[in-house]
Amino acid sequence: MLAVANLLIPSLLGLMILVSGASVANTVEDLTFADDASRDRYQNLIDELRCPQCLNTNLAGSDAMIAANLRREVYRMVTLGETDEAIKSFMYERYGDFILYRPRLMPSTWALWLLPGVLLMIGIWVWWVMARLSSSDSDDEMQMSETDLAEVERLLGESHRANDT
């Protein structure tokens, strides 16, 4: 069973890629843009859109036929002057949120976008608390150790060694 799985998946993948590589007739990308801004938009969009068939590749990096076709659609829409939002809408109306590498901000992704910020704030709070707790006695100790430190420095003449990691 394991053996079958091990053989099946790579073969399927290989087949899919064979299948995609074999088609020729339908890609008529001219790849000329009116200006650099359009070209940049095109490059950014094909970087942010996911190839629906591949194992985690964007449209830019995929050799699959569906990726080539979708790149062509993006190119067509960019040259027609469609906005990035409109192009992304076109894509996720047909392929779902799966095709967007940047998840849309919606109730089901609030946790995704907001939790890291919350974690950061918790982290800063933890740091604050620990720094607070640890410095409460520090002033008294400081004076003593500074004197000691100066004494040590004088004796050994190694003022900078103390700061090695």
Partner: peptide, 25 residues
């Protein structure tokens, strides 16, 4: 970690819908 496993959580929570979390995020 959150970004990496979120697609799993999303799929389980929405009963099968898929989402991608990639480089832009």
């Amino acid at each position: 970690l959150l970004g990496t496993i979120y697609p799993l959580i999303y799929e389980a929570a929405t009963g099968g819908l898929k989402i991608s979390v990639g480089p832009p995020y």
